[in-house]
């Protein structure tokens, strides 16, 4: 496997929507300390489509959680639109997750008490207070429905997650992640739980949205075919990035 040498990390600038600097992460279990990430750097520009690859246990998910502000790094900084996110107060960090980041998980993670439309509306419900939400409710619902219809779920709008297939669930999760129009979407093996045909369709949807919205999309995958469609592939092993660049040129 050939790859371009890793470029030296440049200082985080406003041209990067998402930057990670010297991220380390260790877990303490009992009296043992496990070092998972050993100083990972990453810069993502607006509109970049990047896949993150690596063997199981390499620390991809852990890194993604730190980028997604779900887990704090042991050391290092995460910049989102130029702001050091882990230095923000809890409320503001939550609001960054809400408006700047969209998550797509391997296991969909929909709320089972809500139907498809309501699941898609959830980020908006979190964003707005009661009064503001009720004021725009009609428009918001309309937008959520339109998005689901666009994803081919026009007959599943009022269905609960338990009444949907895996592919349908992931499409609802996709709509939810995109609903507030975040500049960055982080997807951890979004097709990992789907058969290849279904996964293919979901992926097409995601990539189409990425182009259309000029999203910065960071995609964890084990599928080389998917990686080949990305402008940039970051490969990790043992908690380090060991290659980062456009692999399509090599083909």
């Amino acid at each position: 496997m050939s790859s371009t040498p890793r470029p030296a990390p440049a200082p985080a600038t406003a041209t990067h929507v998402l930057s990670a600097r010297a991220i380390t992460k260790s877990f303490t279990i009992g009296d043992r300390t496990l070092d998972i990430l050993h100083g990972v750097d990453l810069d993502l520009a607006r509109g970049e489509l990047v896949s993150l690859m690596g063997a199981s246990g390499a620390g991809k998910s852990t890194f993604l959680h730190i980028l997604g502000l779900l887990e704090s790094p042991t050391a290092g900084e995460v910049f989102i639109e130029g702001h050091s996110a882990w230095k923000l107060p809890v409320q503001e960090r939550a609001s960054v997750r809400n408006q700047k980041l969209g998550f797509v998980f391997q296991f969909y993670h929909l709320l089972s008490e809500l139907d498809a439309v309501e699941n898609v509306l959830l980020p908006a419900m979190i964003l707005h207070g009661r009064g503001a939400y009720l004021g725009k409710q009609k428009a918001l619902r309309e937008r959520a429905r339109a998005l689901l219809v666009k994803f081919g779920l026009e007959h599943r709008l009022e269905h609960r997650p338990s009444q949907l297939s895996g592919g349908e669930r992931q499409r609802v999760a996709l709509a939810r992640a995109l609903f507030l129009d975040p500049p960055i979407v982080i997807a951890d093996e979004p097709t990992g739980n789907l058969d290849s045909a279904t996964g293919e369709k979901v992926l097409e949807l995601l990539l189409a949205e990425q182009r259309e919205r000029n999203l910065t999309l960071l995609l964890v995958t084990h599928d080389e075919r998917i990686a080949r469609r990305c402008q940039r592939v970051v490969r990790m092993a043992d908690g380090r990035v060991h290659s980062d660049g456009d692999e399509r040129a090599k083909e």
């Binding site: 997604g68 939550a94 997750r97 809400n98 998550f103 993670h109 929909l110 959830l122 980020p123 979190i126």
Partner: peptide, 9 residues
């Protein structure tokens, strides 16, 4: 966890 990820405090 989901609510947290979606931005709940």
């Amino acid at each position: 966890g989901i609510l947290c990820a979606l931005g709940a405090t």
